[in-house]
């Protein structure tokens, strides 16, 4: 089947997709966007978190056809040119990345969290990121990274005013 949607600001069309294929497979295998990760394919780990029409979803649970005409933003769409997004930069600096397989999903989920709660408490961070499993870090440095990103974004917005 044919799937047409906007991905990271570009109109994309794929032909010949199998009807049962998830958006995750479409992104990874047909659109050369393997940044969203395939760790469980049942919505339990959050590694494939993307935005669909501005809403944080697991791409593995979206049927390819359901993405027709939708606007998708993936991990590959968060940085501006070579400049990392503040969330990405914070993950690098805080040491929140080890094997990194969970990282794309966590970065997108954190991006979404900070859009909703610019100054999240630790408990808000924990509840918002509970759907993103990390097997390496024990999460401590992920919490550090979220807080660091929140502070940076707040400073940037303050200075932009």
């Amino acid at each position: 089947m044919k799937i047409a949607c906007t991905v990271n600001g570009r109109a994309r069309t794929v032909d010949g997709a199998w009807e049962g294929e998830s958006l995750l497979s479409v992104l990874r295998d047909r659109m050369q966007l393997p940044g969203s990760k395939n760790a469980c394919e049942q919505g339990e780990c959050g590694s494939c978190s993307v935005y669909m029409d501005g809403v944080l979803v697991c791409a593995c649970l979206v049927l390819g056809g359901q993405a027709n005409d939708r606007t998708i933003v993936t991990i590959e769409g968060l940085a501006t040119g070579t400049a990392l997004h503040a969330v990405q930069q914070a993950f690098v600096e805080a040491g929140a990345v080890q094997c990194g397989f969970c990282t794309p999903g966590l970065v997108v989920a954190t991006h979404d969290l900070l859009a909703r709660f610019p100054e999240p408490s630790v408990m808000q961070i924990r509840e918002a990121l509970a759907g993103n499993i990390c097997r390496c870090t024990g999460y401590a440095k992920i919490i550090d990274a979220v807080q660091l990103a929140a502070r940076r974004i707040a400073v940037d917005e303050h200075s932009a005013r």
């Binding site: 809403v55 944080l56 649970l61 759907g131 993103n132």
Partner: peptide, 9 residues
Amino acid sequence: VGSPQIRNR
């Protein structure tokens, strides 16, 4: 129910 990602869908 699940996580924010699951509750969103």
